[in-house]
Amino acid sequence: MMPATTGLTPRLRHVLAAQLRATGAALRGPAVVAGVSFALLTVLVLIERADNSARVIAFHPEHQVLPGLLGLLLPFGVWRGEAPFGRGVLWTLPVDRRTHALAKVFAGWAWLMALVTLLVCWLLALVVASDGQVLAEEVRRIAPTAATARSGSLGPDAAAFVHTSAQPLLWLVPFTASTGTYLFASALALGTRRPLAWVSGVVGGTLLLVTLAEAANADDLLRQIDGGLKALFYGRYGVDTLLTARTESLQGSATLSNGDTVVVWSALPDLTQWAVATAIWIAAGLASLWAAAFRHREARPSSRWSARFLAGKDAVGRQSQQGIRLNGRKVEQ
């Protein structure tokens, strides 16, 4: 079926530009609220620093869980007003539906990167304001095992001290973490009719399973679930690796024998591990997004063709506008 007039649909770059503007407008409201909260937070932090300027803040954007959270929540703002499975605006416009949905997701991602950049700059500003050094060498306490680290039996010099230079590559973590969570959340928002139902369903289902297993004293099952969840979240390629390059789970605080509370690491963050995990998660995110967009594709060739086959070309010719049709039969003049 050749289109009667080609060239009337908007160019992709215009679609992207329009989506960037629209998404920006949609996010403006929540952004203002967030901005105000951040301003307050900054004030509080600065006040705290003024009172107690002992510790120097190091620049570790990878320690923040906030970018990941931001990526998870942003699709709510991006898809504001749109109902992919109901009354929306995207599908009424002269753009291929799948392309359009992906354009919107991309526009949201662009804004996400901008927001994460702002966040990282804010952290940088805090560090500089506290006379910290961005590229300073750090000394970290490494404990032989995680168990020992928490026991409180360590002497002040018991752990191994490691000098680590700054790992600028890890500054990419907020960007990759937020991208990863954003891809999954976007797939959920685009591909399911009730995304919140899915989330609560999965979480609720897991809780139910755990409760039942506990009640039934199914220790093996519990161990398996526990192991699985631990691997998923804190494993080598788990969620924490994506979100914080495992810095969240690798470090902990321990009470020394002399009463001080210090930060202890069970291992140093592994860059290769982080890169591989990020690649896997982002690939998975892209795959989910692709599947979600696939649900909204315009044509379903199979049903079209079978209908034409069954109807036959003749049926098309037999009907005519000429004359009056009443009750399905022609009324002769």
């Binding site: 079926m1 009667a4 080609t6 291929d96 315009e298 044509a299 079209r304």
Partner: peptide, 15 residues
């Protein structure tokens, strides 16, 4: 306008 509403969706909707 001669365009299938599914296969030529965007072009049809443009009109």
């Amino acid at each position: 306008l001669g365009m299938d509403s599914v296969r030529c969706g965007p072009q049809a909707r443009a009109q």
